[in-house]
């Protein structure tokens, strides 16, 4: 996983509430058995005018000119500015994989769906919750300022604007630690192997019917 410390990146707007994971990456692309390569199909159904299928040459497909990410001014964006309940719907990790593969490193929204929020951290993608009024201000700033960039400082938990305003955000300490260091949390959990075994020994006495039945 790519470590995340400080990112200064172009901001692209996604001005819709309740953006669901089917919209982020439609189901036909979930048939892949890989983790990479989903970027060209990010937001496929609103990004292109035709119906996308795996294996198509996406560079030859007709683009939806009204879709923000297709506008030249947002090319190379690393920060996605979104509305409430971003990432609702399915548990597909293909959603953060697609956002990360496209080039996004952080998403700012007033709220996120739980599973999506959690999945982001496993993939070097930082979801940031900011208050509604701040998000509104950022949408205005992005619309009125071509090339608008934000700096995301994870260490100090701040989003810094070009004008020098800084907005604090919350992030769980363990997730922050893993993200800054690009750590694989399986290795960290396995450091607790003795505690897991002790738990199993106790529970096998208390609820033996839970163990050993699927063979």
């Amino acid at each position: 996983m790519k470590p995340f410390t400080t990112v200064t990146g172009l901001v692209a707007p996604m001005d819709r509430s309740n953006v669901d994971t089917d919209m982020i990456i439609p189901k036909q692309f979930l048939k892949s058995i890989k983790r990479s390569g989903f970027g060209p199909n990010l937001f496929d159904e609103v990004r292109y005018l035709d119906e996308g299928q795996p294996g198509m040459d996406n560079s030859k497909r007709p683009l939806n000119p009204d879709f923000e990410l297709n506008k030249p001014r947002y090319a190379g964006a690393q920060v996605l500015l979104a509305r409430k309940n971003f990432g609702c719907g399915s548990s597909r990790e293909h959603a953060p994989w697609a956002l990360e593969d496209y080039g996004f490193r952080a998403i700012i929204a007033p709220s996120f769906a739980d599973i999506f929020y959690n999945n982001c951290f496993k993939n070097g993608l930082l979801p940031i919750v900011l208050a509604d009024d701040i998000v509104d201000r950022l949408f205005d700033a992005v619309a009125s300022t071509e090339g608008y960039k934000l700096t995301i400082d994870l260490e100090n938990q701040k989003v810094v604007t070009p004008e020098g305003d800084a907005f604090d955000f919350e992030v769980n300490a363990f997730r922050k630690h893993c993200l800054i260091n690009g750590l694989d949390d399986i290795g960290l959990t396995l450091q607790d192997a003795d505690a897991i075994r002790a738990y199993e020994t106790r529970r096998e006495q208390e609820t033996p019917w839970v163990f050993g039945h699927i063979r």
């Binding site: 983790r35 399915s90 548990s91 597909r92 990790e93 953060p96 739980d114 599973i115 959690n118 999945n119 496993k122 993939n123 769980n172 363990f174 949390d185 399986i186 959990t189 396995l190 607790d192 192997a193 897991i196 199993e200």
Partner: peptide, 23 residues
């Protein structure tokens, strides 16, 4: 009972546990 992403599927396979914050 709750849904998880693929990284957590791997985590459960490898450790039989998940790191969770109480809801």
């Amino acid at each position: 009972a709750f849904g998880i992403g693929t990284s957590e599927v791997e985590h459960v396979l490898a450790t039989q546990c998940l790191i969770q914050r109480k809801m």
